[in-house]
Write a protein that binds this DNA or RNA. Structure first.
Length: 499
RNA sequence: GGCGCUAUGGUGCAGCGGUUAGCACGCGGCCCUUUCAAGGCUGAAACAUGGGUUCAAUUCCCAUUAGCGCUACCA
């Protein structure tokens, strides 16, 4: 990491018209990684100039999403709705410099002309008629207090281009750009004006944002030029698509970041997954650190690694499909790798969601978590399938009962096994296993039958850690109690499966 | 429709003129085994199409096709 001659300043500028969605989250993440990598500054700016659609609740939702992902910022949040003076001043500058003009066309007129142009097979673009108004005509209309919007006067002819850190040189013919609106007739700035005014005012050096803004960029470049401001580096990041390769939307399921929290995803896993959607570490300088012991490429990167590895030139140009399976894999990897102490607070959040307070000591909880985490797919398992380890009130999984518990004789045997365990004084994995195996031999049944049955009776699940480890974790008292109650395990569950 | 961008297995990426086209997720098989994971071994699976440039194209150029984006007094 070299010391930049100029401080790096980037921003995440969401519009609070919805919750933080995965695309926005990745943009935020890339900005954050870039800022942290370069020792720069990350600014949070709320683009709420669309008063109709913006709300404070949405701002809170966005902040909550960022906090969950562990993305912090250095300045802000700034609200554009409170910086209106800057925009009108900037607009005045543009007007004074001859780069903008008043447009008296009404919304209705505009719509009509657009419809007509489309019907005629043409391109619906503002025809610039108010740009040709004489000073006298403008004066007249103003005197008549006709409402007007302020439009940018796009240069005639030529092209506007910029060097994108991801896409390279991108160029647009000026004749393709229409005289876009800077200030609406109510005096509220449009996005085109407020971004540029803010990006200049906040001295941003890099603009990292979604590729859906590429087409807007020339309009912004033109304003920088007109204002005599230095151009920042633009870096457009490809979009995230759903499995059907269309833009990610509610239709594809969870799109808000916070819904992944509710799904039991570990934030760091989500971050790792997101970082690798559209970005990969550039090999060369970090070759050793991106390979595992066997020399294969790794994909699990902690926050610090991600920060040190991040660079703009590792961003790919094509859109990426959000893959839930891969996210699930990252999640299990993180859950397995986390020490129990780090997992506990996350699990406690899960429990509080279902109003459950465990009675065990912290030590007991930690060892239970260590026992269970290799099999966890989600934090939700701890508030669902794994509940039998933490309390006596739990459900029997119908499929498990159906598969391992059909036999009536098995119930009798398990009850008897419970009685045997009751008489045991030693309680270790070895002793419990030995007792079960000799009991099986004595009864002339396969040990596996009892093991499978006992697993269901003890945990309610067909899937569990090693049975004898479970017995030790549960403790003798619980094991005896649950085995003794084996006869009462609901048959309905089994019937439901068979039916 | 116009303009822009993109195009390697099902998915995410690597490759940056000459490779048996690599890795990860997912999928199949085998081993391990008390269940299920994990783990070990292993298998199937890709350079969109057509032209160029070049001794040589997945790689460079151009078309075509497809996908996505923009096309508002939304952001």
């Amino acid at each position: 990491m070299t010391t930049p001659s100029q401080e790096i300043r980037v921003r995440f500028a969401p519009s609070p018209t919805g919750y933080l969605h995965v695309g926005g989250a990745r943009t935020a993440l890339f900005n954050w990684l870039f800022a942290r990598h370069t020792g720069g500054t990350l600014i949070l700016r709320i683009e709420d100039t669309d008063f109709e659609r913006s709300s404070e609740a949405m701002v809170e939702g966005i902040l909550e999403g960022m906090r969950w992902l562990g993305l912090d910022w250095n300045e802000g949040p700034f609200y554009q709705s409170r910086r209106l003076d800057l925009y009108t001043a900037t607009a005045a500058k543009l007007l004074a410099g001859g780069h903008a003009y008043r447009c008296f066309c009404t919304r209705e007129e505009l719509e009509q002309r657009r419809a007509a142009a489309t019907a005629a097979g043409g391109t619906p673009m503002y025809d610039g008629r108010c740009r040709r108004l004489t000073p006298h005509q403008v004066q007249e209309r103003q005197a008549a207090s006709q409402p007007f919007a302020l439009r940018f006067a796009v240069p005639v002819g030529g092209a506007t281009s910029f060097d994108d850190a991801v896409f390279g040189n991108v160029s647009f013919a000026n004749e393709e750009l229409e005289d876009f609106v800077l200030l609406r007739s109510d005096g509220i700035p449009t996005y085109h004006l407020s971004v540029v005014a803010d990006d200049i005012d906040m001295r941003l050096t890099h603009i990292i944002r979604g590729a859906d803004h590429i087409s807007n960029t020339p309009k912004q470049v033109l304003q920088y030029l007109a204002l005599g401001a230095p151009l920042p580096v633009f870096a457009h990041v490809p979009l995230i698509l759903g499995p059907d390769k269309t833009r990610l939307s509610k239709r594809h399921g969870a799109t808000s970041v916070i819904s992944y929290k509710e799904l039991g995803i570990v934030p760091e896993a989500f971050r790792n997954f997101l970082a690798l959607l559209g970005w990969t570490p550039r090999d060369s300088a970090w070759a050793s650190s991106t390979k595992d012991a066997a020399g294969k490429e790794r994909e699990i990167f902690g926050s610090e690694e991600l920060i040190s590895l991040f660079s703009l030139d590792g961003i790919s140009k094509s859109n990426a499909v959000f893959d839930n399976d891969k996210l699930a894999w990252f999640n299990t990897e993180y859950i397995r790798a986390y020490p129990a102490g780090k997992l506990l607070p996350l699990i406690e959040e899960e429990w509080s969601r279902i109003n459950f307070v465990p009675q065990q000591s912290r030590e007991a909880l930690l060892s239970l978590i260590d026992l269970l985490k290799p099999r966890a797919r989600s934090l939700r398992d701890f508030s669902g399938a794994f509940l039998a380890y933490f309390r006596d009130d739990f459900e029997f999984d119908a499929a498990a009962v159906g598969k391992f518990f059909k036999d009536d004789e098995l119930r009798t045997l398990l009850v008897e096994l419970g009685l045997r365990y009751q008489g045991e004084s030693e309680w270790t994995e070895a002793s419990t296993e030995q007792l079960l195996r000799s009991f099986a031999e004595q009864k002339q049944v396969k040990a596996g039958l009892l093991i499978n049955g006992a697993r269901v009776a003890l945990t309610g699940q067909g899937v569990a850690p090693s049975l004898f480890a479970v017995m030790v974790a549960l403790g003798k008292e619980r094991v005896v109690r649950r085995l003794s109650a084996a006869a009462a395990i609901p048959l309905a569950a089994a019937a439901a499966v068979e039916g």
